[in-house]
């Protein structure tokens, strides 16, 4: 009994000991993974909301509508196959982002202007 007690999070009951043999390796390809971006209302950027599997772009957009806008969360959908997303390398994040730390002149609050100056 005690060997079974291994893991204790919600929805986690450990792997069953002596479960059936692993399923025979399936040769079938999986439908590609797509990333979904949704514009929640006019005037806002598209925002990454999640992923899904679809055989083609039309299907991906339809699924995105069904999966991610069931509660009227969007007015526009972008999908892109995940393999086409290039990401920055987190190990290089020091090189990429730290230099911005001392370039506060990129932020508008850096400049001290008279309060009377309006609309700027």
């Amino acid at each position: 009994m005690l060997q079974l007690i291994k893991k204790y999070y919600y929805g986690d009951y450990g792997e069953i000991e002596g479960g059936a043999a692993p399923a025979p390796g399936s040769n079938s390809r999986e439908w590609p993974l797509w990333e979904v971006f949704i514009r929640s209302k006019q005037g806002l950027d598209h925002k990454h909301v999640g992923s899904l599997h679809a055989a083609d772009a039309a299907m991906a957009i339809e699924n995105a509508r069904d999966v991610y806008t069931r509660r009227m969360e969007g007015v526009s959908i972008w999908v892109v196959e995940s393999k086409y997303i290039h990401a920055s390398n987190p190990d290089e994040s020091d090189a990429l982002y730290d230099p911005a730390n001392d370039k506060i002149y990129r932020h508008p609050t850096f400049y001290q202007l008279p309060d009377e100056l309006k609309y700027m």
């Binding site: 439908w31 899904l52 599997h53 679809a54 299907m59 339809e62 699924n63 069904d66 999966v67 069931r70």
Partner: peptide, 11 residues
């Protein structure tokens, strides 16, 4: 046949 289509058909 696949989770996404299950959702689509239920819709």
């Amino acid at each position: 046949p696949v989770l996404e289509q299950d959702i689509a058909l239920t819709n």
